[in-house]
Write a protein that binds this DNA or RNA. Structure first.
Lengths: 147, 147
DNA sequence: ACACCACTTGACACTATTTGACACTAGGAT
DNA sequence: ATCCTAGTGTCAAATAGTGTCAAGTGGTGT
């Protein structure tokens, strides 16, 4: 049922991140993929099944030339790397992406249905707090949604 | 799979820049080239496989005489230099180009499909932050693209 | 509560790639 | 002619990435 759940995982000393088994199963069964395409996203990273990624690329390539297209190419498409799982279910995240997301030891991996987000624990705490206060401020919206 | 990925590389004390092995492989296999043509581009540099560069030159030469053609000749075609790899996979970037892009110690090399961009770390941080804030401000656009 | 099992993590050895260093060459200026 | 600077070729050290093993961890079912 798509990627979901929040996992604290660790990164080994060479920069490999363990991807939870449930996500790997999901990928194998629903996408027939043995890897993920990882790229920058805000102060963290996102990962997509390769087939999803191909669609996104199409969309970006189809944009009219201009600063928006440039920005997407430079900050999303260009830094992306396809990473495959090793025997233990880890992916090697390239150094530049690790640095971008300040991944050092503890990382949080979150299933977001179509995509998977990867954050440093600090960054995740921050963004989660931000989101929480947005929700707090919108009690009506929450109620309307049925929460 | 064309050039892609973002790499932090360093420049040696004589002005040679290491080109990532993956780009060199790509060049060898898809372009049968052992070097790159480097030229100015905004506040940084771009590098093209020689065969691509030849096409670009054709296009510029074919332009009708006028200030636009002049500008392209002066700022893109004229400063270009074909650089070949040394045994360690480095290219010697001419001084004038190094100065133009303020390359001193840490440089960022980015695969942009048909071309490769080369920035000083500072310049890249700047331009990436700019692009990121553009993307942030256009949440709808990002969603439409599938991100 | 216990034993079991699957998953995650740390570690290590090995390979590939990148980097710093140094000696050497060519060309320009004095 | 000689000095100085910029560039070249090459070596070897350092760093980064890969594959794999085995110990740890947490969850499951009985």
């Amino acid at each position: 049922m798509k990627f979901s759940g929040e996992y604290n995982v660790s990164i080994d000393l060479k920069g490999r991140v363990s991807i939870p088994a449930s996500f790997r199963d999901e990928l194998r069964h629903d996408y027939e993929a043995e890897g993920l395409v990882v790229t920058r996203y805000k102060k963290g990273l996102v990962a997509y099944p390769p087939s999803r990624w191909a669609e996104i690329c199409e969309n970006v390539f189809a944009m009219p030339a201009g600063p928006m297209r440039e920005a997407n190419l430079r900050n999303r498409i260009a830094p992306a790397k396809e990473c495959s799982f090793n025997a233990q279910g880890r992916i090697q995240v390239p150094q530049s992406l690790r640095e971008h997301a300040s991944l050092d030891k503890d990382v949080v991996v979150i299933g977001m249905f179509e995509k998977i987000e990867i954050w440093s624990q600090q960054a995740h705490t921050l963004i989660a707090a931000e989101s929480e206060s947005m929700l707090d401020d919108d009690a009506q919206g929450q109620a309307d949604l049925g929460f």
